[in-house]
Computed example of a mutant assay.
Amino acid sequence: MTQPNKQQIFERLGAPFREDEIEWRAQTTIAANNGKPPKALVVPYVQSRAIMNRLDEVVGWDKWENTVQELPGGGILQGIRIWISDNQSITKWDGADRTNMEATKGGISSAFKRAAVLFNIGRYLYSAEAKWVEITPNRTTQKDEYIQDKKKDIYGYFTPPSMNNGNRKINNSHERVSPASRNQAPNVQPQTTEIPAGMFECTYQGKLLQESESGPYMEVWLKSNGDIACLYAIGETINKIESLFLVEGETIAVGSRVDKQGRFIVTDLIRLSQAA
C-alpha cells in the first residue's frame, strides 16, 4: 500500500464530520417576546472523541500523541504530534483558558480542539454560519440539547440544526461560498496590492464570533508562511471584518497589537486580492 503524502494526510484529516459527531454551542440568546418562544444563536463544533477517532483513522492509533502543559495564569497549552513517516513527525500547539464548568477538563478539551484545527481537523466549521434555533421547555426529539442562560433566566432544549440546510453553505476545503451567494449584497472592499506600513500579508482562513463576560469577540484565523494563527477582533473591528464578506483563501493584510494577556488583537484588516 502506498504511504499517503503530507497533502493527502492534511486533506483526509480535514474531511467533514458526520452529523452525530457535531455539537452546537450557543453564542447568544433572546428571551420570549410577543408569544414567540426564546431563541438561541448556535454555532457548530466537533467533539473531542470524534477528533481522536479521526486521528486514529487517518494516521493510526499509534502514530499520534498529545501533550498538555499548564500556562502561567492557569491557561492550558496542548500539542498534538503526528508521525507522517517512521522518522518524521509534526507537532502543532494551541491553548485555551479554563472553562467555567469542570475548569481543568474543559480547558484541556478546548486546547485539544484548537490544536486539532491546526491540522485541518474541523477547520471548515469555523466558516459555518451561526443559526437561530427555538428553545422549548421540554425535549421534542431524542437529539435535543439542553441550554441555559442564567443572566437572562432562559432554560430549555433546542433541536440541533442540520449542517446541510439553512440559508448559507459551509465553507470548507472542497467548496467555497462566493460573496454573491450571501443573503445581502456584500460591501466589497476595493483590492489593493500595497501593504500599508505596520501590517502583514497573510491568507484568510475563517472566523468565529464568540461571547465572553466582557462582551463579544471574534476569532480570526489566518495562514502565514505555512503556519495557522488565531488573532482576535473586538469592538468596531468586528463590524468591519463582517462587512468585507471574506472568503477562505483570499489574501489580506492585517495590523495587530498585543494585549496584556499576550493575545494578538486585530487593529485593522484589508483585502489584497480575492480567492480564485
Rank of each mutant, 00 (worst) to 15 (best):
R54I: 05
Q7V: 10
N53A: 13
F200N: 08
S243W: 06
N87V: 12
I170K: 00
G106Q: 00
Q8F: 02
G255C: 04
Y126S: 11
E242Y: 14
Q205A: 08
I234F: 15
M199E: 13
P137H: 04
Q191M: 11
F10L: 09
G79Y: 01
K92P: 03
A50T: 04
T251S: 08
D153W: 06
D268P: 07
P4F: 02
D97A: 13
V220I: 07
G73H: 01
V247Y: 03
I228H: 13
Q261T: 09
N100L: 12
I82D: 00
V46N: 01
T136Y: 05
M218E: 11
Q274F: 07
G106L: 05
V266L: 04
F119K: 01
V266W: 06
N33Q: 14
W132F: 13
R123C: 07
M199R: 14
M52P: 04
K152F: 03
Y157S: 00
T2L: 13
D94V: 02
L246V: 06
P216N: 09
L272H: 04
F119N: 01
G206E: 03
P72E: 11
V177G: 01
N120C: 07
W221T: 10
Q191E: 15
L208D: 15
Q78M: 13
N87I: 11
G122D: 00
A26R: 02
E21S: 10
V220C: 04
M199L: 08
L125D: 01
K92D: 02
K223L: 12
Q184K: 11
G106F: 07
P179Q: 07
I9M: 08
K36E: 10
Y157C: 03
D227C: 09
L118S: 09
G75T: 01
Y45V: 03
Y232P: 00
T104Q: 08
Q184R: 12
Q47A: 11
G156N: 03
V58I: 15
G262V: 06
G226K: 07
Q3D: 08
I265G: 06
Q88G: 06
D149R: 07
E194G: 05
N167E: 10
I238E: 12
R12Q: 15
T203Q: 10
E65L: 08
A15I: 01
D86F: 07
G122C: 01
F200W: 10
E57F: 11
L125W: 01
A111R: 02
V58K: 06
G75V: 04
S273N: 15
N171A: 09
A111L: 02
T2V: 13
I82V: 13
D149C: 14
S173K: 10
E242Q: 13
I265W: 03
A229C: 08
D153E: 14
P179V: 07
K240S: 09
G166A: 05
S127M: 08
G79E: 00
P216E: 07
N225E: 14
E250I: 05
V43Q: 13
T99R: 12
